[in-house]
């Protein structure tokens, strides 16, 4: 059963085709990495999947439902959560309050004037659980805008997890991190995938992370699908080598 299917998606910005006729199918429980040189269209591809804007052509199917024209918030309700390449958080709220917003939406409380005591306790339990999963339990009362970059990235993942998603989209989760932070985030993602059987699609530049985590890899280049396969296959793929070396040269 495919959880996510993208069928021949294309996105134009004026005359620029940022994504051209890209298809992808991710089965339930897979961890898929999307890689490619700068400007390949990876983030644009994520934006199409998550509903920031509609594709110029093509379809997005989530869990058997066509969500191509569906607004972003409705996709979240179906179980899609994402993080951004440039961290998007609520800087003037504490880490716990950041996570609480997602948890309350997931519990269906967003229009509630009032929560019962039992509901509140259950909610609190979930918030604390999510915080400790992301390794933020001891920083829960700090303002998230005052945290170190790596902790802010972790907080954004925690916010997405508070939604209890079925598909998690991570746009360069280790961007701008040092080795230790990268290691911790990698362990977190691995845990989510292995224990939670969460389906994850992640964009990543750090090849150590990609090859450590991914079940399969999709390679984009200049908006086009260049290759798809297991890490072993991608490692020896000539076209992929050329695309990366071509950029480096």
């Amino acid at each position: 059963m495919m959880l996510l299917e993208v069928v021949a998606a294309t996105k134009h910005f004026g005359r620029l085709a940022a994504v051209r006729d890209v298809s992808l199918a991710v089965p339930q429980g897979e961890l898929r990495a999307v890689i490619g040189p700068n400007g390949a269209g990876k983030t644009t591809f994520f934006n199409l999947i998550s509903g920031l804007f509609p594709p110029t052509a093509g379809r997005v199917v989530f869990d058997g439902r066509d969500v191509t024209g569906m607004p972003a918030h409705a996709r979240v309700k179906l179980g899609m959560a994402r993080t951004f390449q440039i961290t998007e958080i609520f800087p003037e709220l504490s880490v716990r309050e950041n996570v609480r917003v997602g948890a309350e939406v997931a519990a269906g409380f967003r229009l509630r004037p009032w929560i019962s005591r039992a509901e509140g306790a259950e909610l609190q339990r979930r918030i604390e659980e999510t915080l400790s999963l992301a390794g933020l339990a001891n920083k829960a009362d700090r303002l998230v805008g005052e945290l170190a970059h790596g902790d802010q990235r972790a907080a954004e993942i925690a916010m997405a997890l508070a939604l209890r998603p079925r598909l998690l989209l991570l746009d360069e989760p280790t961007a701008g991190m040092g080795d230790q932070e990268t290691y911790e985030i990698t362990q977190l993602i691995r845990g989510l995938h292995r224990d939670g059987k969460l389906t994850i699609v992640l964009i990543e530049h750090d090849m150590r992370v990609v090859f450590h985590l991914a079940d399969r890899i999709t390679v984009l280049d200049q908006g086009k699908l260049l290759a798809e396969g297991t890490p072993q296959e991608i490692a020896v793929n000539d076209a992929v080598q050329a695309a990366y070396l071509g950029k480096a040269a």
Binding site: S50, P71, A72, H73, A74, V76, K77, A81, R82, F84, E88, I89, F90, P91, E92, L93, E97, R100, V101, G102, E104, V105, A106, F109, R110, L111, R112, P113, W114, I115, M159, L163
Partner: peptide, 29 residues
């Protein structure tokens, strides 16, 4: 004060803090 302390009030503050994040947390902004 009651509205602002409610879950709905927190979604208002979420929108103030970061509209895009609010939208991608499932809030119809």
């Amino acid at each position: 004060g009651f509205v602002l302390r409610s879950p709905f009030g927190r979604t208002m503050i979420a929108i103030r803090e970061n509209e895009r994040r609010a939208r991608f947390l499932g809030i119809p902004v």
